[in-house]
Amino acid sequence: MKIKFKIKRYNPAEGEPAEPYFQAYTLDVEEGMSVLDALLKIADEQDTTLSFRRSCRSSICGSCAVNINGFARLSCATQVMPEYAKMGDMVIEPLSNHVPLKDLIVDFNPFWSRIEKVAPYLTPTSRRARRRGDVPARENDGARVTARDEEAIDKSQRCIMCGCCNSECNALEIDDRYIGPAALAKAWRLVGDVREGNSRKRLERLSEEHGMWNCVRCVHCTQYCPKSVSPLKQIESLRSRAMKEGVLDNPGAKHVEAMADSVKRVGRLDEAAMTFRTLGFLRSLGMIPFGLKMERHGKMPKPLLFPQIENIAEVRDIYEEAERLEKEDRERKKG
């Protein structure tokens, strides 16, 4: 069967078109062929100038990620026939949210800078610091990592740094200063490690602007990660840990705290109170003219009229029980 591959081309050399453009190649394809096989065949038989990264051909090296029909995937792990049957097209482009260098090859330096920002190596508490009592003794102080300890960071260790998640990330699409899902998944790999000695410091840095609270929860990273790292889950783990460790002085954490209080108080989201608590007094004042405009259409939330759900006592019981059982669990682990 012959199908048409539309491939995004770009060459910064002089005399080449300044803007990226599509070039079509018709290729004989067969069952079992991957998109990477197809790219190799095109480069081999039709156009030796076509550039793309690849190495292992088995979803381990992470170098062959490209955009296939609009979504970031490993070209070695995407089969041509089912993809074509489903999407009715075969459009290959470089990863989104990355700058193309030539054809399908993108500049990965910004990717690595983001990873470097989270100091991607373990910084265990030094024995001396522990002896001096500068740092509180942790439950497990780095002596041993149990299977259960490992489970908490297991998924975050599967990352092959292919860039699919950053390519799909909607926050990165709009805000290029955002740290991105790949680095955040790596950050949980370290914060969640029982041997790590600087978790709190890490969480404080991650809570700064363009950090972990800027994730928009679009779930693209988790949907398209080829190794099931679930970066969103790791971001949620970071945020929960920050809430528990009391790293709360930022709009993201305040927002979550306000929500937790609102549900405990009335069983529902109290929008007026949430806005006020997240923004603080001064920024909330700035919202008044806008609020009045919404009020003309009856859209200004009114906290006082907010009805409680029936049996709110059950919700409060659940809060207490969750806390009590967690404490019990923590103590069991210690003892």
Binding site: M243, G267, E310, I318, Y319, A322, E326
Partner: peptide, 23 residues
């Protein structure tokens, strides 16, 4: 569903996952 509480809108998943599951 007059008794139904808020699902947490993802924010309670950030707050405390076991609590969010129970709610």
């Amino acid at each position: 569903m007059p008794k139904a509480n808020c699902c947490g809108a993802g924010l309670l998943t950030d707050y405390d996952y076991p609590l969010s599951l129970a709610l």
